[in-house]
Simulated scan of single mutants.
Amino acid sequence: MTSAQPLYPTPNPDPFFAAPGNLADLAPGDVVRTRRLDTGLYVGTTIWHVAFRSTNSAGNPIMAVTTVLIPAGVTNPPLVSYQALINSLGTKCNPSYSLLNEETLDAWGAVLPLGRGWAIALPDYLGPTVAYGAARLSGMVTLDSVKALQRAPELGLGASQVALAGYSGGGMASAWAAALQPSYAPDLKLAGVAAGGIPADLEELALGLGFGFHPGFGLAFAAAMGLEREYPERLPISDQLNDTGLWFREITHDECRRFLLLHGAVRNAEQLAATKSLMDSPDARAVLRENSLRYFEGVPQAPTLIWQGVFDELTPFETVAGIAARYCRAGAPITFSPYPIAEHMTTAVAGLAEAWTFLEARFRGEPAPTRC
């Protein structure tokens, strides 16, 4: 019978992605190694992989990687770390690999600002175990990725202004990075943050999913497996799976968004779970809350745009609106932008132009508007 221990992804066989033995001696954001890549589809840019030291949810050192595209002939370009959609469990799904094979769904929008002369970075913000759903982890990795880009002298980004952007899971990583920055990376200055479609309450989403069929079940299952990877003692989800569930875990543990959505569409928790008691566990619910922006007391200091679909059932509007209102009451420079749209990814496209315009104004030094 398949082990009920967490099932981790197959490690990337490329030695560039192997952590060094002295990782614990490095500080968060320190560079481990860099390499230059062929430009491929992205003509007119220099592409680099940068490996760096970061921190996981237990406070232990990990190595992560970010990919940066720098427009040719531009000195000290503004830098945007774009947290792409990594709705996945396999290392092959990370932007460091998938940016070059079209798996990164929002790459087309992420790289648009290259035409403005900006550098664009896409970090593997779920860490080496691809801990999908581990939102706090994603915020720390995002912040450390930017610090590493500034510390690598061969990139020429040490004096660049920095902003963050992302949507959905990438919006969650960006919003967490903004809220964590004052405490986790107080030495890092952010010119602005644009985050949309934020899954801001994982407990609410899990309870809302229930045990019935849902078109996003494959991604919900992946998030459960990703959180178990990050919290193996506190969230033993595999112990709650029946034989079918363990089989489904096996066939999905290295897979990406399209596979997960396709094979999850005809399955539900009722089919895969041996028990319905997991959400009765106070520790399990505590893990979900620890990764829910709704319950994190930190407040961004950087000018932040939050855009959200008013009728989006995947990421409930009222939860995100409540967070924006709390930030505003705390004096944070927040611009909250609701879109009267129901479909989750349509809101991503609708708000992207506003996001880039917002960040461009911050790079120009214009005062940030406050709109709650």
Rank of each mutant, 00 (worst) to 15 (best):
S277Q: 10
A274T: 11
G109N: 12
E228C: 10
Y42D: 15
N56A: 01
S168E: 02
L272S: 11
Y339G: 04
S183K: 02
N242S: 11
H49S: 01
R33A: 13
G365Q: 07
P282M: 09
A110P: 09
N291R: 01
F213D: 15
Q181W: 01
A27N: 14
A121P: 05
L209W: 04
F248S: 10
A163L: 05
A302T: 05
H214T: 02
E297M: 10
M172C: 08
L79D: 02
S138V: 09
A119L: 12
T67N: 01
E297A: 15
A185P: 10
F317C: 02
G212F: 05
P95T: 07
A152T: 05
L235R: 05
E233Q: 14
I334L: 13
M140I: 11
Q308L: 04
G40H: 03
W48E: 01
L114Y: 05
A361N: 12
P11S: 03
A274P: 09
G127S: 04
L126Y: 12
P282W: 03
L69W: 14
G298C: 11
A223H: 00
Y295D: 04
M140W: 13
T275Y: 08
T244Y: 15
S54D: 02
D243V: 13
T67H: 02
L114F: 03
A342T: 09
I251S: 07
G331T: 05
K276V: 13
P77Q: 03
Q5F: 14
T34M: 03
G226S: 06
P128Y: 05
V32M: 03
L293V: 06
